[in-house]
Simulated assay, not measured.
Amino acid sequence: MEKPINKNSAELSSYISKILRDHFGKGPESVHVSLGKTFIIVYIRNFLTPTEKVLMNQKQDESVQQTRGLVMQTLIPEIKAYIKIVTGMEIREFYYDWSLQNKSAMFTGISTDSTSTDFPITEEFTGKAELINEMIYLSSESEKKPEEIYACRVNQRTILVIRNGILVRIEKQLIRQGMQEQLKLAKRTLEKGLLHNNNHFEGILDTKVIDIFVDWDFDLDKSVIVFVVNPTK
Rank of each mutant, 00 (worst) to 15 (best):
I162N: 07
I162H: 09
R163H: 04
R163M: 05
N164F: 09
G165P: 03
G165A: 03
L167A: 09
L167S: 14
V168H: 03
R169L: 12
R169Y: 14
R169G: 02
I170F: 13
E171I: 04
K172G: 13
K172A: 04
L174Y: 03
L174G: 03
L174M: 13
L174T: 04
R176F: 09
R176C: 07
Q177G: 01
G178V: 02
Q180C: 03
Q182N: 06
Q182S: 11
L183C: 02
L183G: 00
K184N: 10
K184C: 05
K184E: 06
L185K: 07
L185Y: 04
T189V: 06
E191T: 02
E191G: 00
E191Q: 12
K192L: 10
G193P: 00
G193Q: 01
G193L: 01
G193Y: 03
L194I: 14
L194A: 09
L194C: 06
L194D: 09
L194Y: 15
L195W: 07
L195D: 03
N197D: 13
N197W: 11
N199I: 15
N199Q: 15
N199Y: 15
H200E: 15
F201S: 02
F201H: 05
F201C: 02
G203T: 07
I204K: 06
I204F: 10
L205C: 14
D206V: 12
D206Q: 14
T207P: 08
T207Y: 11
I210M: 11
F213E: 04
F213V: 03
V214T: 13
V214P: 04
V214Q: 12
D215G: 13
D215P: 04
D215A: 04
